[in-house]
């Protein structure tokens, strides 16, 4: 269906990222000297307690909350030098990034199919082609039978699958997921995590998942711990295998 880039190309590289909120007495260092590289086709987990800086790192990598200093390259393209954008961030997000959150954040007045289709149309895919590709993605993620349902009529797990389909719609270099299973039971949470692995390994997308869920760590290629804004060396999962 699609020509994917080589698996060994970095999906994202971040160097020495620091994020400071406030100044003077109210200064808070949310992230300090974070350096990380995620290859295409890799799925990694970011672990850590609340306030460790996981979401700050994720939103920085997602180009929605620029760091105070440091550099970010996505797909080999420098995109941020400190807070300074080197490209049009919105256009770059459109082409290269996908997002999944704790809540599916589906647009309530669009059905499942349209929620995926709109992501494609935003990227200038003609409506008919967008519809076909959206349906293929829903089928790939196992929710094609709910294509015409509004989000209200979908279960939490189904909503997250649609959200993943939407995030993958434009074949992003990188998929960022922030606590995607927090609102799901353990069974459905596991299904979603396995879905990320499937996406990463089959489609060559780099996937970064912020999670507290210790039960599904085996699905990740690497896990990283964050604490007090500092990232610790990653650990390779023993059970994860490239399919």
């Amino acid at each position: 269906m699609t020509n994917f880039p080589p698996a060994n190309t970095p999906a994202i590289e971040v160097f020495n990222l620091t994020k400071i909120y406030g100044s003077g007495n109210t200064e808070v260092v949310a992230m300090k000297g974070v350096t990380l590289q995620v290859a295409r086709g890799q799925v990694i987990a970011l672990l850590g307690p609340s306030g460790a800086g996981k979401s700050t790192l994720l939103t920085a990598m997602g180009l929605i909350n620029p760091p105070t200093s440091g550099r970010i390259l996505i797909g080999g393209v420098p995109v941020l030098d400190g807070p300074l954008p080197l490209v049009s961030l919105r256009a770059f997000r459109r082409h290269h990034l996908g997002f999944v959150f704790q809540k599916a954040n589906l647009i309530p007045f669009l059905n499942a199919l349209q929620n995926v289709q709109v992501a494609l149309e935003i990227n200038d895919v003609p409506p008919r082609q967008a519809r076909r590709r959206a349906l293929e993605l829903l089928d790939y993620l196992g929710v094609a039978d709910r294509a015409v349902n509004l989000p209200d009529a979908l279960s939490g797990g189904q909503q997250q699958r649609v959200a993943v389909a939407r995030a993958l719609a434009n074949q992003p270099d990188l998929l960022l997921a922030d606590e995607p299973t927090a609102a799901l039971d353990s069974h459905r949470g596991r299904q979603v995590m396995e879905l990320f692995r499937k996406v990463a390994h089959e489609r060559g997308t780099g996937v970064i998942v912020v999670t507290h869920d210790q039960r599904s760590l085996d699905v990740f290629d690497w896990t990283y711990e964050m604490e007090d804004g500092v990232i610790h060396a990653g650990a390779k999962s023993h059970t994860s295998t490239r399919s």
Binding site: G62, R90, F92, R93, R94, N105, I107, I122, N123, R166
Partner: peptide, 16 residues
């Protein structure tokens, strides 16, 4: 507003 923020996150242009 939340949906509009989501559209922007997905890269929707202002014209949309």
């Amino acid at each position: 507003i939340h949906d509009i923020a989501m559209l922007k996150l997905m890269g929707a242009r202002n014209s949309m």
